[in-house]
Design a protein around this nucleic acid. Sequence first.
DNA 1: AATCAATGACTGATAGTCGGTCATTATTTG
DNA 2: CAAATAATGACCGACTATCAGTCATTGATT
Lengths: 198, 198
Amino acid sequence: MAIIVDKEQKRIDIALSCKDLFIAKGIKNITISQIAQEAGVGKGTIYDYFKNKEDIVFEIVNILMAQFNATKEQRINEATSTKAKIKIFFDFFYNPDKADLREIFKEFVSISLTQSSKDIQEFLKDTHERYYAWFCAILQEGIDKNEIKPLAIDLAKGLFVIGDGFFISNTMKGSTQNIKEEITLHLDTIFKLIEVKQ
Amino acid sequence: MAIIVDKEQKRIDIALSCKDLFIAKGIKNITISQIAQEAGVGKGTIYDYFKNKEDIVFEIVNILMAQFNATKEQRINEATSTKAKIKIFFDFFYNPDKADLREIFKEFVSISLTQSSKDIQEFLKDTHERYYAWFCAILQEGIDKNEIKPLAIDLAKGLFVIGDGFFISNTMKGSTQNIKEEITLHLDTIFKLIEVKQ
DNA sequence: AATCAATGACTGATAGTCGGTCATTATTTG
DNA sequence: CAAATAATGACCGACTATCAGTCATTGATT
């Protein structure tokens, strides 16, 4: 009876159109009016597609992460050793091409910590569990192949969270230069300990 | 002259008086007027002692962390094994008595990620480095005593950040119940690997 | 009288709402 | 079948409520 818009697609379009604004200025320094202008729609329209400013950040992170993870899965499958696979898993935290994405991820974490609804927490939990299962599968595969000791599976959770740990720690200090070296050293050392000597 | 107030003490008094408000509602859901009322001063007075709302959170975290760490140093010195010392280091993240402090710490991290000034980043960097040095010293002591392998020192940074990692990861999911078990398992497993067999 | 502390009314900015308009499609009618 | 009309979702921006932060004034002390 009337115009029917692909709501999901438009949500994506709006989110992506103001991505650079978020990266450049940060959520606190942008107004909804600016976002609307950047997206080429009216202010009210923004609220037809998003609950609030934070919701836009969630959408941006979702879109970009999905894109990123599509290639990640492939790269992990191509890697041969468990160590190499695990390193790719943390690639996001130091890949120079992903600096922009990390900038938004920072906002995302900040929001998630203090302002996320039950819905969003549920979503985060699901996402987290899916990735953790994937991570465990990689480790288990290494164990089954006798590349690493069975004990390594007990390190899964602790290893899984070190990406976040390094990221938060470095971001809070304002020094994100050397995450790669830090993560690499840690993983190399862990692998020295858990690798099965042939 | 005129009335001379102990500015530093009053800053502390104001900060502590609204601590519970921050814990109960979170920074986003409190107004400066509420804070002023809770502290029993005028709104303008708040701005004589703090730059903004975020600044109050920094003060609260500083005060409470300082209190907490005073006892922490002692407890670490009392512990005999390196493993026990390291576990106490992460006590903050799961000690049931510190749930309130963690609630504010959450706000603190959230702010630090996206809104901290150069000054505050500098401060965070200093604090971080001091704690990291302490952490390394504990590990080094264990190495010198031949409790753990020399290699363990390369795990320092990665171990140091797992507290933050678990905290962020669990907080984002809204499940802070099992951090203790997770950290304990991780540390126990790491120590199985780095302990020197006698 | 000089000086510092405290204050709360005021201002500017902005998040979020809501009544109304417009464009498109469905339905009716000649 | 074409024109007229009805229905509806998309879109909008003026408006409102709220609140962070300021500053001119008052009050207290020596």
